[in-house]
Structures are given as structure tokens and as C-alpha cells.
């Protein structure tokens, strides 16, 4: 009985200590201090970040697939070089992000395995197909534009390694959006067929891009605590509105029509109001039923499996060299 009593009191003390530490932690966040890997943090903060950063990393990696589809078919060498550089950047962004997630105590292998097993999510947008060259323009202009809108506030996220990774990502990402807009500009100033191609791509991508900001504020699961912890600085709807307001004049300049007949400028607020988003489609795509979910997962698994011999050979070679230098030293 005595032992049990001791245990109880210990557990209670630990809770008290945790409550005190949690309050201290929140005070640091409120003072805009950055949290670093070895600092104490609530388990839920760690879990939220591992989930968010690894999903972000998976998105960068899966995001290479829709664009990679067009590298060999880019219309000019200039476009091809730019697209190749962009896809290389996405890979780099994935790696920065995995490294940031790893500082929280999960290995990259573990995180990648979760993705390959279909247990981790990645951005819904990459489950849509790239049917024409104009899709590459729209991805740069709108998909990367939306990503930048999301990522700029993350540069001030409370978790140091994530914030620092986002600063690098945002610096590099701005070329992505500009090269996309340039593609759209060329097409929309081109032949009738090219204009139609640009409009068709905008029609197909507009709504999925608006969904990238996540569920509406009234339905978001993670919003409140993430805001309190300063992981998130703006709500989904706020960012979506900022994006729409920035994008409408850009579309007007291109002479393209946003596929939302209900869209109108609210003269009082100065904001562009958009029609209701089909959240059922979003749910379906996240649940694995989008147009390309199975293709994307199959492509990632194939790349992982076909790269296995490279990983094994590199590890074996490193081990052989280690043993040889140990033998020489002996």
C-alpha cells in the first residue's frame, strides 16, 4: 500500500510540475521566444508539429510528381531548365522539412514509411492530374502562390527549426510563382487554342487551389491550439481571402475568367467574395478518392523500392571503408 501511495504522489507531482512547465512554455511563446529542439515542450505541441511538418515534407516530395510529368515535354529549353530547377527545389524543400521534423525525435525513415504506408497525409492538391502544359503554368501561379500565402506566416512560427526551414523555402519559392505566371502570360497572349488551354487549366485548378487552405474556420480541428502555440498565425479562411484578393487582379491582367460566376467585389470590405466551396470533394480527395491518389502513392512506392539497392550499396560501402580505416589504425 505504501508503495502505491508513493507512486500516486509521484504521479501527482509530475502533473503539477507539467502544469507549471506548460505555463512557463506558454509564457515563452507569448513573449515571441523561439522554441528549440532540446527545450521542454508539451507532448501535444511536439505531436502537432511532427504531424504538420512531416505532412508538409510529404507534400513537397509528392508535389514533384505532377510537374515531373512535363519535364520531358516542356515546349522550350528555357521552360525545361526552369521546370527542372523548380522540381529540384521541391525536393530540397522536402529535405529541409524532414530535417526540421527530425529535430522533434522522429527519424526520416519512420516518417517516410508512414507516408508510403498511406498513414500520413499530404496536400490534397497533388492528387489532381496535369493534363496540358498550361497546368504547369497554373501550378506555379496558383498552387505555389497559395503555398507561399500559407508559408510566409510560418517563417514566424514558434518552433525555431520549422521557421528557419520556411525562410529558405519562401526565398526559393518566389521564382516558382513568377515562372508559372510567365507561362500563363505567354499562353494568354498567344493563339486562340493557347488562350483556351490557359482558361481550361484555370477552370480545373481554381477550386482545388482554394481547398489547399484547408477546411473553413468553423470546421477546423487544429486551429485553436495551433494559434495559441503560434504555429499558425492566420486562420484558413483569412489566408484563403488574402489569396483570392491577390489573385483576382492577376487573372484579370491575363484576361482569364475565374470559374466562379458568383464572385463579386464587396465594395464595403474591399474583399472579393467567392461562392461556396465543395467540401465533400476535399474530403473525398483526402480520403484517398481523388483523381490521382493511387497513382501518386504507387509512384512514390516504386521510387522508394527501386532506390533500395542504392541505399544498401552506399551503406555497405561506408561500412567497408570504416572497417578498412579501423584495420589500418590497429
Amino acid at each position: 500500500m505504501y508503495t502505491q501511495a508513493l507512486n500516486t504522489s509521484e504521479a501527482e507531482d509530475r502533473n503539477l510540475e507539467d502544469a507549471a512547465r506548460a505555463a512557463q512554455f506558454q509564457a515563452r511563446i507569448d513573449a515571441e521566444e523561439r522554441i528549440e529542439p532540446n527545450d521542454w515542450m508539451p507532448a501535444a505541441y511536439r505531436k502537432t508539429l511532427v504531424r504538420q511538418i512531416s505532412q508538409h515534407a510529404h507534400s513537397e516530395i509528392v508535389g514533384m510528381l505532377p510537374e515531373g510529368n512535363w519535364i520531358t515535354r516542356a515546349p522550350t529549353l528555357r521552360r525545361k531548365a526552369a521546370l527542372l530547377a523548380k522540381v529540384q527545389d521541391e525536393c530540397g524543400h522536402g529535405l529541409y522539412l524532414y530535417a526540421a521534423a527530425e529535430t522533434l525525435g522522429s527519424s526520416r525513415e519512420e516518417l517516410v514509411d508512414q507516408m508510403l504506408a498511406g498513414k500520413a497525409k499530404y496536400s490534397s492538391i497533388f492528387n489532381y492530374p496535369t493534363l496540358t502544359w498550361a497546368d504547369i503554368g497554373v501550378i506555379g501561379w496558383l498552387v505555389d502562390g497559395a503555398a507561399i500565402m500559407n508559408q510566409i506566416p510560418l517563417c514566424r512560427c514558434s518552433y525555431g527549426p520549422y521557421a528557419r526551414a520556411m525562410i529558405r523555402v519562401c526565398k526559393e519559392e518566389s521564382f516558382h510563382q513568377r515562372q508559372g505566371y510567365e507561362i500563363m502570360l505567354t499562353l494568354s497572349r498567344g493563339s486562340e487554342e493557347q488562350k483556351a488551354m490557359a482558361q481550361d487549366a484555370l477552370n480545373r485548378w481554381w477550386w482545388p487551389v482554394l481547398m489547399m487552405f484547408g477546411p473553413p474556420d468553423r470546421a477546423s480541428q487544429h486551429g485553436d491550439t495551433s494559434t495559441r502555440w503560434k504555429i499558425k498565425r492566420f486562420s484558413n479562411d483569412e489566408l484563403r481571402q488574402k489569396f483570392v484578393d491577390a489573385t483576382v487582379p492577376q487573372a484579370q491582367y491575363l484576361g482569364l475568367t475565374i470559374p466562379d460566376p458568383g464572385m463579386r467585389l464587396n465594395a464595403t470590405t474591399g474583399h472579393w467574395e467567392y461562392s461556396a466551396i465543395d467540401w465533400e470533394e476535399f474530403k473525398q480527395v483526402l480520403a484517398g478518392n481523388g483523381p490521382c491518389n493511387r497513382d501518386r502513392m504507387a509512384a512514390r512506392r516504386k521510387a522508394h523500392e527501386e532506390g533500395a539497392w542504392v541505399r544498401e550499396a552506399a551503406a555497405a560501402y561506408a561500412e567497408k571503408r570504416r572497417q578498412r580505416s579501423a584495420a589500418r589504425a590497429a
Partner: peptide, 22 residues
């Protein structure tokens, strides 16, 4: 930042690719 590599030579090459593209 950081990266994964089996040995120092590959770590240097990966660092070139991941952190000095510009």
C-alpha cells in the same frame, strides 16, 4: 541545416545539392 548521408563524401555532395543551389 542538416542532412542524411552514409559517409562524408556523399554528405558533401548532398550538401552541395541541398544547400547551395543558388
Amino acid at each position: 541545416g542538416s542532412l542524411h548521408a552514409p559517409d562524408a563524401t556523399l554528405a558533401l555532395q548532398a550538401a552541395r545539392d541541398v544547400y547551395t543551389r543558388r
